Amino acid sequence: MLCLLFLSACADQPGQPLPALRIQEPLPSLAAEYQTTLSDTYAKRPKNGSRHYRWRLYRAADRIETHNLCAESSEVWSRTHYGEINHQQLFHAQKRLIEYVSGDLKAIGQLPIWTTLATLISPTDLSALHAVGEERYGEFSAIRYAGSIAEEQETLELLWLPQLQLPALIKRQRRDHALQTRLIEWHHLGDSPWPTPETADYRVIDFADLGDKEHDPALIGLLPGSPHPHSD
């Protein structure tokens, strides 16, 4: 089912306290397309214009995939029955797949928080945000949150869709740049028109073996400094 979302008029109800933002599991399985815009805002620096990135999130109970539509690469995270998280980096043009087991991620300090991968909201964000209003967003009720993160010198604004447990809009403002991520459209995962790439013929490389592959022409320039897809 295709659901195009458009922001509509504000529908605040004075006198009714708005809830704090809480992640409520189980999370709905869905596929969503986002556009992230990075803008230079430092007044003394020549403006380089805004850069736009389209990407997709596929979310299931124990599997999360993000697909960078510009770079033709993907990140896949899977969670075992015991709660361990494994990771794959996919480079589609080169047909290469780099695998990280949970121990690899711990060793390089990149073991993520599952709910952050699944909702794009970190525990630091959650502790900083407070509700400031309620709106309609297409067919959904949405709650607007705002806050600031002193350690990052960052202000944060979020439009949250409780029914989807997903943000419709994230705005991050720092001294020299602004980052905005906006939901374009979403689908129930089983009805998604966006198939994930087939990887049966990809060459699989274990993270532990990357040092032996540094001269692989298909990997030059792709070897990861960090496997996390949403760092900023």
Rank of each mutant, 00 (worst) to 15 (best):
G190K: 15
G138Q: 02
S148Y: 02
Q89F: 07
P224S: 05
A150K: 15
A118D: 05
P227M: 05
H67L: 15
L222C: 08
A168W: 05
T80C: 06
E214A: 04
V76C: 08
E151M: 12
H228A: 03
Y202M: 11
R174I: 06
L18W: 12
Q88G: 00
H130C: 00
P14E: 11
L166T: 04
A71H: 13
S74H: 04
Y42A: 14
D40S: 15
V101W: 00
S29F: 01
E154G: 01
E185C: 10
R45H: 11
D232C: 01
A31R: 01
W77S: 11
L183N: 07
P217A: 09
P14H: 12
S148P: 00
Y100N: 01
I143M: 03
K95Y: 04
E65T: 15
Q24T: 15
G138M: 02
A71I: 01
E154C: 13
E99L: 11
L4N: 07
E198H: 14
A150R: 14
R144K: 13
A43W: 10
T199R: 14
R96D: 01
S50M: 09
P224E: 06
S231T: 09
G133Q: 08
H215D: 15
L117R: 03
A146Q: 15
H228L: 15
S73H: 07
E72M: 07
D216S: 12
A43N: 05
H177S: 13
D201I: 12
L27I: 06
P197N: 08
D212L: 14
S231A: 08
H52R: 12
G211W: 04
R79E: 13
W77G: 08
L69P: 01
Y137W: 15
L158W: 02
Q173N: 11
A118G: 10
R174H: 13
S127K: 12
L210F: 01
A168C: 09
A131Q: 04
Q173G: 01
A32L: 10
T181M: 12
A20N: 14
P14L: 09
H187G: 04
R51Y: 02
Y137N: 13
A11F: 04
L129Y: 02
P217M: 11
F91T: 01
P217Q: 09
A60M: 10
A208R: 14
D104G: 00
G109H: 10
R63A: 10
T119R: 00
L27M: 06
L2W: 07
L156N: 01
I23P: 02
R172E: 14
Q165E: 08
A31F: 06
T36S: 15
G133I: 05
G190L: 13
A208Y: 00
L129S: 01
L38D: 03
R96W: 03
A107G: 03
R79A: 08
L210K: 04
P123E: 03
D212R: 15
A71M: 12
A146M: 06
R45F: 13
R175G: 11
N48W: 00
L120V: 00
P195R: 05
A61F: 08
L18K: 09
Q88I: 01
E134S: 09
E25F: 07
P162I: 02
D40H: 12
